[in-house]
């Protein structure tokens, strides 16, 4: 066998082993989260090393318990409210802002791009204490609407940056025709830019949703009243109060994870593109 053939064989073996390794490493924790949430507590305590899931013994009581006894219905609604409002505001303001940056002439355009990039790299831990202090002082801290504003500040610059890159690729001819025919600038945005940018808007919207839905630090620091908790905040609260009942914590984890994974699988095509154009940080 030539060296070329030997190396090809080695590569083929390495590829199979490698893919198995990655699949196991990535999928197992998700499988385990779901399997443990469906298993009766005695089973977890008596037989923690049982890898299989016995379908005849599936037990949904953990979900019932978490949803109705531990207030997770409320947390789901709160998380939906926070995420959807953040998405709506972020996409709307970023569309208008992205249009201004790419189509209108004004001073400080390059300054804009730099400041967006700097904000993109800004960590939450540096902002959380000063915001905690000022909102506590003003008595506004324990509020989901304040949380939405903070999330907006985290997502808006990146959303604007992504849409800016996309708007640059759109042909100007249609817009100019629209302007000549008497469309206003906002008319152009509404009738021409938005319909042409549907994929980019979808990917920006998904990212914003994901950031708001997954966010932990601000929700943890700001929210005190259980009625206002988002899901992430609720899971931490639950884990602290039912320390040994792993089944409940896993059911709560499934509730916070599955929506985002489903959205992601559904829109996978947009997401991979969005991610490499700077949509995610962390």
């Amino acid at each position: 066998m030539s060296r070329e053939q030997i190396e090809h064989t080695i590569i083929r073996v390495l590829r199979i082993v490698g893919i198995l390794f990655f699949v196991l490493m990535v999928a197992f924790p998700f499988y385990w989260m779901i399997a443990s949430s469906l298993r009766p507590l005695e089973e977890i305590l008596m037989n923690p090393a049982n890898l299989g899931l016995d379908f005849r013994k599936i037990d949904l009581s953990a979900y019932y318990n978490v949803l109705f006894d531990h207030g997770f219905v409320r947390y789901i609604l709160n998380s939906l409210y926070v995420s959807i409002i953040t998405v709506a505001l972020s996409v709307a303001l970023a569309t208008v802002g992205g249009y201004a940056v790419t189509r209108l002439r004004f001073r400080g355009q390059s300054f804009m791009s730099y400041s967006i990039l700097i904000i993109y790299m800004f960590p939450a831990i540096v902002l959380v204490i000063p915001l905690y202090v000022i909102f506590s002082h003003m008595g506004l801290r324990d509020s989901v609407n304040v949380l939405i504003l903070v999330y907006l500040a985290q997502t808006l610059p990146v959303a604007l940056y992504m849409l800016r890159s996309y708007f640059k690729t759109l042909p100007l001819e249609i817009e100019n025709a629209g302007l000549i025919d008497g469309c206003t600038r906002f008319g152009v945005i509404w009738r021409i830019i938005i319909p042409l940018s549907a994929p980019a808007l979808a990917s920006v919207g998904l990212y914003t949703f994901m950031i708001a839905w997954n966010e932990f630090l601000f929700a943890f620091m700001f929210l005190d009243t259980p009625d206002k908790f988002t899901l992430s905040r609720g899971v931490v609260q639950l884990a602290g109060s039912v320390h040994l009942s792993k089944q409940l914590v896993m059911a709560a984890s499934v509730l916070v994870t599955l929506p985002i994974l489903f959205l992601f699988l559904f829109f996978e095509r947009y997401l991979a593109r969005g991610m490499t154009s700077g949509a995610m940080k962390g």
């Binding site: 999928a27 924790p29 989260m33 994901m210 992430s232 916070v256 994870t257 994974l261």
Partner: peptide
Amino acid sequence: APYIAPVVA
């Protein structure tokens, strides 16, 4: 998936 899923879970 590990990057998409919420950190608490």
